[in-house]
Design a protein around this nucleic acid. Structure first.
Lengths: 138, 138
DNA sequence: ATAAACTATGAAGTGAACTTTATGGCAAGC
DNA sequence: GCTTGCCATAAAGTTCACTTCATAGTTTAT
């Protein structure tokens, strides 16, 4: 049984964040109870809960999504196949975000190519601009 | 010379966004002037300006960063070498974000491996859990 | 002439995940 | 018994890039 600051230190969170999670319904009375003085009192399960929250955050879950996932986790409501499907959907989500970054990198590489050429061979660089039809420089 | 809705249509933006950009200092009187009725009047330079804004947004620039970049662009204040350095810094920024996503994918792949095994060979999956020391399931 | 459509302004709202502020009740040490 | 420090709550603030709202002046079409 520990108080909020102890849990915060243990988990590398602030006490504000922990209270915030509780307000958002990510913790319930398996994790927090009140002492006679109204102070919050956390069980070991709270530690595991916060680890789980961190794990799901680390795979790109929003708190809203996390709340759903945790509710189903608590209720043991999903079959293994459903979980597999969910993981694969999450993978696609992240892969498509990665592709966005790849496009940014493509653009940046083109800019870099142009700028590098501009140092070494300004004439050819000029040609490049026309080819690209890149109106306002790069 | 065009009015705001025409520019918005041409650029695929809303009139609100265009006014917002002006308020943020991304457009100046080379791009917008006022008619006698106080309506905004946009030049062709405005079109180019918005294209430039879109280009920089597409490589992951915030509006704040964009503002800086545009000011220096307007003043012709950066050498080619400085621009090259900037592009490379931007690339690193984006690559590190990509790495975060790679880590998420790693985790998801491990989860998937475990869950798949759990369907095919529950016993071995149990072993896996112990090896991972993954406290609260995966 | 009147309604519809476009323009203007400033302020407030959105969403996500916290953080900060304001205010005040307990507790531990000296 | 007084200060220091931890605990409590509710509400507001933060960041970003817009969007929405409320209100009102202007222009165009019928």
């Amino acid at each position: 049984m520990m108080k909020i600051q102890e849990l915060a230190d243990k988990m590398g969170l602030t006490i504000h964040t922990i209270r915030f999670y509780e307000k958002e319904g990510l913790l319930d009375d398996r994790h927090v109870r009140r002492e006679s003085n109204n102070y919050r009192n956390y069980s070991e399960e709270a530690v595991e809960r916060l680890k789980l929250i961190k794990k799901f955050q680390s795979i790109g879950c929003s708190l809203a999504e996390l709340k759903e996932v945790l509710q189903e986790h608590d209720a043991n409501a999903r079959t293994n196949q459903q979980i597999i499907d969910w993981i694969q959907a999450k993978k696609k989500e992240i892969e498509s975000k990665k592709e966005e970054y790849d496009q940014m990198l493509d653009t940046l590489n083109k800019m870099l190519e142009y700028r590098t050429l501009l140092m070494d061979d300004p004439q050819t660089a000029q040609e490049m601009l026309k080819t690209w039809h890149a109106g306002s420089s790069v």
